[in-house]
Design a protein around this nucleic acid. Sequence first.
DNA 1: CGTAATTTCATACTAAAGTATGAGGATCGA
DNA 2: TCGATCCTCATACTTTAGTATGAAATTACG
Lengths: 143, 143
Amino acid sequence: MTKQIDVKSTILCGISMAILLFILKWLELRFVVFDHLFEVYAAIISVIFMVLGAWLMHNFQQRKLEKENAKQEIVAVPELGLSQREMEVLMLMSQGYTNQQIADKLFLSIHTIKTHGSNLFVKLDVKNRTQALIKAKELEILE
Amino acid sequence: MTKQIDVKSTILCGISMAILLFILKWLELRFVVFDHLFEVYAAIISVIFMVLGAWLMHNFQQRKLEKENAKQEIVAVPELGLSQREMEVLMLMSQGYTNQQIADKLFLSIHTIKTHGSNLFVKLDVKNRTQALIKAKELEILE
DNA sequence: CGTAATTTCATACTAAAGTATGAGGATCGA
DNA sequence: TCGATCCTCATACTTTAGTATGAAATTACG
């Protein structure tokens, strides 16, 4: 997918450059015919290459966006195998408590809470507690 | 907001064009001195204007994206005095994005996001983003 | 009984979040 | 034009969060 895009992009760019060079040569001939028209010549290729630059950038941005949008994956795994403690920690996390507060409530070390937290995030396939509670609600684990 | 951007964009564009014309004129002089260097002259202004075109398109795209992201118009603004930007940041926070990701989406510095975040937490009377999103849902600001 | 899973705690680290403060530009209404 | 507000960015700092790894005790099950 990515390779394909890059190849296509390269080919398009090459073809564009070739056409541009051809036009340039053609303009040069006309320039010789109508001598002393530096400004006209310069203006024409300026416009042409500005458009080319804009077009290339436009394509580049488009590709970039496409890649980003293609990243979304849907996993949806109900069988998560969350343990008792992990559920408790998840509940308290989703109520806005810090790790230290959770540790105090459960009479545990903050290290333990962090451990449960990390394991929790792996099982839920998230990166932090905010995403965890969002996912938990999606999966109807909470509320 | 939009006017501001357009004004700035126009000014930047104008200045760029002015500088470019100046460079062009300068190149033309050199061209007269070193006669018969059509190709060199053409190549230089080609590159310059291609870069200019790419740059302009890049700016244009960014503005466009920014507008799109801002399109999720947040209407519900109670007596909390949340500003537009603060609401946007709150929305993205509540979707599980990190400060850096939010900064990227809004084309802002992470410092700015943190500033908005802090102000946000004061206004919502919370201590962190998790509590913020809980409170936001309670107040029916979100969803 | 042995094994697997769970729970607990720890150290050591990196990454992210959050606070405090200042500053400059843009906007808008009086 | 002036002041208030918002938006932006920055530096410097402290605090939480999160990861990686290891280890010991407990429990449950075949």
